[in-house]
């Protein structure tokens, strides 16, 4: 039970930073943290029904749920792709504004047009 509460706390911290942190790069980091918390949630819950790896063999009836693991492989990779593209965009924006501050980017971006 405690572990789920801890995961919830991790999720809240990440989401809070994603919303309220002013630096774009911290927002991307926060997105990574939230993603990690969700992946951990899947894996930890999926292992609650067994205590053996997902291989065929004698321990078959005791193994953890292989489904969530296969899903999370995909989710992790998608998260990394999103991170890499957003970082590329941030580098592009830095070339113009020389700041990570979201408010400044907003203000100066509007002035341009």
């Amino acid at each position: 039970m405690i572990r789920y509460i801890l995961l919830g706390i991790l999720f809240i911290i990440g989401m809070y930073a994603l919303i309220f942190h002013r630096s774009v790069i911290k927002k991307v980091i926060a997105l990574g943290i939230v993603n990690t918390s969700v992946v951990l949630l899947f894996i930890i819950s999926g292992s609650s029904i067994g205590d053996a790896p997902a291989f065929t063999g004698e321990q078959g009836a005791r193994m953890v749920d292989p489904m969530v693991q296969a899903l999370m492989l995909t989710a992790i990779v998608i998260g990394v792709c999103i991170t890499s593209f957003s970082l590329a965009l941030i580098v592009h924006l830095w070339g113009r504004f020389e700041t990570f501050d979201i408010d400044t980017i907003e203000k100066r971006g509007d002035d341009e047009s």
């Binding site: 995961l7 949630l41 999926g46 193994m63």
Partner: peptide, 14 residues
């Protein structure tokens, strides 16, 4: 979303 209720984790797929 995070705190599970007492339903056991499904085992059909396994």
């Amino acid at each position: 979303l995070f705190i599970p209720d007492d339903t056991p984790w499904p085992t059909d797929v396994r």
